[in-house]
């Protein structure tokens, strides 16, 4: 039987994992431990991290040491590979120290949940990618040497009236619109997407929100009053949204150095 998340709603119901995770866990739960591990280590069909963290976090599943070891090493190797890509020595000062710190702290968190049977990492079984990214960013904030001096992170949002007063050239606006078209094929390139997402995460909050919403397919404006637009969602004027997108576009373009591809 799959162990429920310990976190409960205000109504006392257990929090749910995403449906596909619950289904996968239910199927794996029917297998013998050896089969279960084989499935989880299959290189041709990678199991989601939510599944691996489930088996690592719950001591009460009583998997033998060799099973936990195999799952742990798979988990570790995948995390290490990911960190080598997202925090490369070539682009981040003290990258090795930061990667080590992240790995060690995750190990400590998993061990803590195993030892205490608390549910502090429940959300990692719900949305591992999001939990991991938040955790990674927290540690970069603490250890990243460039963080405090990074002008993007420390940019102060302009007041709304000041933003509206800025003139953005039609050319920049058109380029921004093309860049943020969520259907563009470049987003299908994993390497480009990783760099783009990292660059978006480095934007000031107001610009990140505008970019994040347009990438989700939300329109800047609409004549239909019932349609949610970015300006309605962010409670600002359409002109402000366009200015934020244009500013974000300039920064992302610089960050990605993709002028020749645009």
């Amino acid at each position: 039987m799959v162990i429920s998340l310990g976190k409960v709603t205000r109504d006392g119901k257990p929090y749910q994992r995403r449906r596909e995770t619950e289904c996968l866990l239910e199927n794996l739960d029917l297998l013998e431990p050896d089969q279960l591990v084989d499935m989880c280590l299959n290189p041709d069909e990678i199991v989601p991290f939510e599944v691996l963290i489930y088996y690592l976090r719950h001591k009460e599943l009583a998997l033998e040491k060799r099973h936990v070891e195999a799952l742990f090493k798979s988990f570790y190797t995948r995390i290490e590979t990911s960190l080598n890509q997202s925090i490369p020595d070539s682009r981040v000062d003290r990258a090795r120290d930061i990667r080590e710190e992240i790995v060690v702290r995750i190990m400590e968190k998993i061990a803590s949940d195993r030892n205490t049977q608390q549910d502090k990492m429940y959300y990692w079984e719900v949305n591992f990618n999001h939990a991991f990214e938040s955790f990674r960013k927290d540690i970069l904030k603490q250890l990243g040497p460039t963080y405090k001096s990074d002008p993007l992170r420390n940019a102060t949002a302009l007041s709304q009236s000041a933003e509206e007063g800025l003139d953005v050239s039609p050319e920049v606006e058109a380029a921004a619109a093309e860049f943020f078209n969520p259907n563009q094929s470049k987003l299908d390139d994993p390497a480009f997407r990783l760099r783009l997402l990292a660059a978006i995460n480095d934007l000031p909050d107001d610009e990140k929100r505008a970019v994040g919403l347009i990438l989700q397919g939300i329109q800047i404006e609409s004549k239909d009053p019932d349609v949610m637009t970015i300006s309605k969602a962010l409670k600002c004027r359409e002109r402000t949204v366009r200015n934020r997108l244009s500013r974000a576009y300039s920064k992302l373009k610089d960050a990605l150095q993709v002028e020749e591809l645009l």
């Binding site: 742990f72 090493k73 890509q85 949305n127 990618n129 991991f132 978006i200 989700q216």
Partner: peptide, 23 residues
Amino acid sequence: SIELLTAPNLDEKPPKIVSSDSA
């Protein structure tokens, strides 16, 4: 919604698995 959108998908098959010497 934006954090979920911009969190890298770690379940994609990486182009190259690093050596697991340290595992």
